[in-house]
Structure formats: C-alpha cells, structure tokens
Amino acid sequence: MAILEVRGVNKRFGGLQALGDVNLSVEEGSVHAIIGPNGAGKSTLLNCLVGKLNPDSGSVNFDGQSVLGRSPHEINQMGISRVFQTPEIFGDLTVIENMLIPCYARRDGAFKLNPLTSMRKGGEMQTKAEAMLDDVNMLDKLHMQASSMSRGDKRRLEMAMCLVQEPRLLLLDEPTAGMARADTNNTIDLLKEIHAKRDITMAIIEHDMHVVFSLAQRITVLAQGTPLVEDTPENIKGHPKVKEAYLGETAE
C-alpha cells in the first residue's frame, strides 16, 4: 500500500517549470530514492511534501489525507519527519535538550502552555531520549553543546531527533552530502540498521549513486521537473534514459 501519493504536481517559479506533472508513490515500509541531475526539481518536490512550498496544481496525499495547505508543523504531527541537507539542530542547546524537544512535541502536540511544570531528570521523556541516543551511540555526548560537535555527529543527532518521534515517513535530503567516503559508509550502515529495526518508510533524495544503490528498493529518476522512470535499482542501473539524463548522450 502506498503511504505517500503524489499525483500530477506542478510547480512554476516565474518562467521556470520546476515540477511538471510529477507522479510518485512510496510504498509503506520501503526505501524509495529520488535521484536526478542538478536542477531536476528534487528539492522542490521535497519542499512540496513538507509544507514549505505549495504546488500550483496536483495532489499530495499522506496516508489518505492531503498535506497541501498545511504548515510544516502540522505535517510533522501527521507523521512525516525531515532530515535536512545541512543538519538543522538546536546549536545553542545540549544534545539531550535537542532530543527532549521532539519527545515533548510528540507527547504534547504543536503547542502546550506548561511554564510551571519542571523537567525532571530521569523522567519518562528523559528515558526515551537517552534510549534513542544510545541507539545511535551518542550517549557519551549527552551534555555537549550541539554546535560544538563534528558534522557527522550533528547529522546523527538530527536523525535521532527525527527517529525518536517515531515518524511513519522519514524524508532525507542528501544525507551524505559533503561527507568523506568513510562517513558515507557509516551513514549507509546507520540508515540500513534503522530501516531494519524500525520498519520506517524512507524517501531519500541523493546525488551519490553508491548510497542510492546500496539502500533503495525503488528509484525514481527526475529530470527537468518530470519523472523519467521509476524502477528497481537493478533495472535503473543500465537504463538508457537515465544515462541520457545524467550524461547527456543525445547531445553527441
């Protein structure tokens, strides 16, 4: 069953057709990669899914409900979490405080006025946050200021913050961008482990073919705002249209 259904989505910025009639469906429990050359509209598509942009036409349904016209926080509360290309974390706060925020967000909803309740050590939320940090091997950095960590750790923290919310769909925007090969492999292992353990549906936007082919079960290739093909990694590898989009073979 498809958990995310994108039907006939169009988005235009002035004279530029960023997305033209995009159809996409992500099966529940799968890892779905969206690839394409620069300017193919991958990030625009992602922004349409999380409420940052509103498509000019078309529909985006998550679990049977439309996400269009909703703000990012409402969409997150529906069960979609997003990992950014450059890690978006709370730099001034400590690692554990970073983790507590999504925990409270899941428990209390988008807004709760509770200025006089205290955040006790060893409370339910604290235990949950620490267990998640343990899962990503960051328990030793509990009281470190988030902005002082390495980029890889920031990325891991951001993923942990998304995962602790137990999302039904995790969107990853180039999770290995700018990483060294060793870090990239670590991230692949981490994502594999997460997928195996938690059975979360993932949609990954990625440049790096190595990452895509080692993770994804289905791949959609975007070029100039429209999906070229959607198939399994094996079939995509040798697909002539994909080669054409990436290497521009027709030009010769």
């Binding site: 709370f90 001034d92 925020i101 899941r106 988008a110």
Partner: peptide
C-alpha cells in the same frame, strides 16, 4: 530557547 537557536528545526519537529 529552541526558538532562539533554530526556528526551522522547531517547525519541522512539529511545534
């Protein structure tokens, strides 16, 4: 305090 450091992340965390 989270508002002060990163409003984007806060929005995408469902708040």
């Amino acid at each position: 305090r989270a508002i002060k450091t990163n409003q984007t992340r806060l929005n995408y965390t469902g708040l």
